[in-house]
Amino acid sequence: MFGRSKDIWIICAGFIAAMHIGKLPPVVPVLQQELQISFFQAGLLLSLVQGAGMCFALLFGSYVEKLGLRRCIVTGLMLLTSASILGSISQSVSALLFLRVIEGFGFLLVTTSAPALIRQITLPEQINKKMGLWSAYMGGGMGIALLCTPYLLLFMGWQGVWLFFAMLSGLIAFIIYIQIPEPPRHRQTVDIQKLIAMTLKHSPAWLLALIFGTYAGQWLGLVGFLPTIYQQNQISLQMAGVLTAVVAMSNAVGTAWCGVLLQRGIQAKLLMQFAYVVLMVCAIAFYCFKQFLPFIVQYVLVLSFSLFGGYIAAIIFSQAIHFVAKPIAISTTIGLVLQFSSISQFILPPVIAFIVSISADSWFWVGILMATLSGFGMILCQRLFHPKTLNLQRDAIVE
């Protein structure tokens, strides 16, 4: 049984790594009461997990195969386990902030190593299916955590929640260590520094990274603060967790469905631009005018935002293998994309919290900010699929 499903454990590792990010949003109101953290500190807790990716994703993407893909995944899961255990016994905001940084390194090790390992241990005829499952790790993992955490809080408190997710990541780390052998490492035909320099000089790689950056922070900002928004509207913590979990899981559905549409021949540029239009409309309507809308309409708006945002994630990762300086630079290019994703997710939640704090709890300017980012993403998308960029890419591969 294990022999036929080794890649499933790697996919599980991605989902569980994302659960460590998703465990926090439902706990924010509890931490505000028990540890007296401010709304701005809550934003930092949401974003600091992206600190490692913000600084080192490109570097990690260049080195993980050389270090050993399985080793990096197991190490990442153990960092998540250790930081979560220590977090469960922490009683200071500064300690929790530091441990979120450590969790960020664990998350980065898993997410930069897993796609390459899946490609190595999966049969060629199964690779599209398995990579489709992998691409849903963020929305799916966060969704599961957002769904479970409010109910776990009832029985074990937030410290118990941290221990529960530590147990899960430790278990998966053990299974991967036992069941999956370390694949042979390929000899590097290009020096690491030259590989990074090659990627940084390749404008299509920058466009991919910038496009993903305009989206990733928006999605985390939306999902991360939804439980708080719902609580302000007298919705119970448990119901808020369920509603937010469905929003997060819809992102994974959007990612999978976009993969189907791409396979059927629909243009990536068309799908991405459509997705950004939906994001702009939903952000303005939800954040700027939500006080005038019935709750069901508000919920449809955030659900649509997450669902069609999944299109952008699916297209970025499907196109990353085509917009590289050289085929050997695929992992490095994905590292650059993840780095900009982390920068966006690190910056935007505190910015949102700051805007709301100085605007008397008004979310109007958050909607304007979100719509502006989506507009910028549409411009970058147009540039990525412009004939001049496509010709540049063709020439780079031929050389």
Rank of each mutant, 00 (worst) to 15 (best):
S5Q: 14
W9L: 14
I10R: 00
A13F: 10
F15P: 00
I16D: 06
I16P: 03
Q33N: 14
Q41G: 05
C55R: 02
F56K: 02
Y63T: 01
I73S: 09
I73D: 07
G87S: 13
S94A: 10
L97F: 08
L97D: 10
F98A: 12
V101G: 10
F107N: 07
L109Y: 00
L109S: 04
T111N: 15
T112W: 08
S113F: 08
A114D: 04
L117D: 09
L123E: 11
G132E: 05
L133N: 08
W134A: 05
W134F: 07
S135Q: 08
M138A: 09
L146I: 05
L147P: 00
G157Y: 09
F165R: 01
A166E: 05
R187K: 14
V190A: 06
I192H: 08
A209L: 11
G213A: 10
Y215Q: 04
Q218W: 03
Q218E: 13
G224T: 02
G224I: 03
Y230L: 07
I235L: 05
S236W: 03
V253S: 04
G254V: 04
A256P: 04
L261E: 06
L262Q: 14
K269V: 12
L271Q: 10
Y276Q: 08
L279C: 15
V281E: 08
C282I: 08
I284V: 15
K290G: 07
F292E: 15
F308D: 01
Y311G: 06
S318A: 12
I321C: 13
F323V: 02
F323P: 03
I328H: 14
I330H: 03
L336F: 15
F340Y: 15
S342G: 12
L348D: 12
A353L: 04
S359T: 11
A360V: 07
V366M: 12
G377H: 05
L384Y: 00
A396L: 09
